[in-house]
């Protein structure tokens, strides 16, 4: 016999499937964009600027080889930064993240209250699952605009 010590909270926090009465309640992890702009610590600010040029995102997420989120570089910071500088020197470390089993409607309301449009969704260990866009709950087929 084996004891899954971390229990179902851990399972759901990794965005894994579930059964039960809440099966039809949308969770944030099910509605994310799985391919937001990402780069590595060694990337340059100029590379990120290129990456964001045609992107709806207002930031790039810095991840390691395991896709663990290390930081975020905002478009507004890029404008005033040395383009040859490394992302590491310009990024903000450890951006706020949420777990994929956060109910999507609840998360959208939280974002609205804080006047934010997106939330970075990760596993408890920080591995990037994707980015949740508040607007997607209201208009799932719409392309999102700029982010905050």
């Amino acid at each position: 016999m084996a004891d899954y010590v971390n229990g179902k909270t851990d399972w759901f926090a990794h965005g894994l499937p579930r059964e039960g009465e809440t099966e039809n309640v949308a969770y944030a992890g099910e509605l994310v964009d799985e391919h937001p702009p990402t780069c590595h610590l060694e990337s340059s600010v100029a590379e990120v600027a290129d990456l964001l040029e045609q992107s709806a995102y207002g930031y790039c997420l810095i991840v390691n080889q395991q896709r663990v989120v290390l930081g975020r570089l905002r478009r507004s910071v890029i404008a005033g930064a040395d383009p040859t500088a490394s992302v590491e020197s310009a990024m903000e470390s450890g951006p706020s993240t949420v777990r994929p089993n956060t109910p999507a409607r609840e998360l959208a309301e939280r974002l609205r209250a804080q006047e934010l449009r997106t939330a970075v969704v990760t596993t408890p260990g920080g591995r990037l699952i994707g980015v949740f866009w508040r607007e997607r709950l209201e208009a799932p087929d719409d392309q999102a605009g700029s982010s905050s």
């Binding site: 084996a2 899954y4 179902k8 399972w11 990794h14 059964e19 039960g20 009465e21 809440t22």
Partner: peptide
């Protein structure tokens, strides 16, 4: 841990939730 659970499930393990029925009904693996 989670990886151990996944490995055991691949080998045909059975999952048993020991919480009360109402909590199981709400959400389970």
């Amino acid at each position: 841990d989670l990886n151990g659970v996944k490995r055991l499930l691949q080998n045909g393990a059975q999952l048993v939730e020991v919480l009360p029925p109402a909590e199981f009904a709400e959400e389970h693996l």
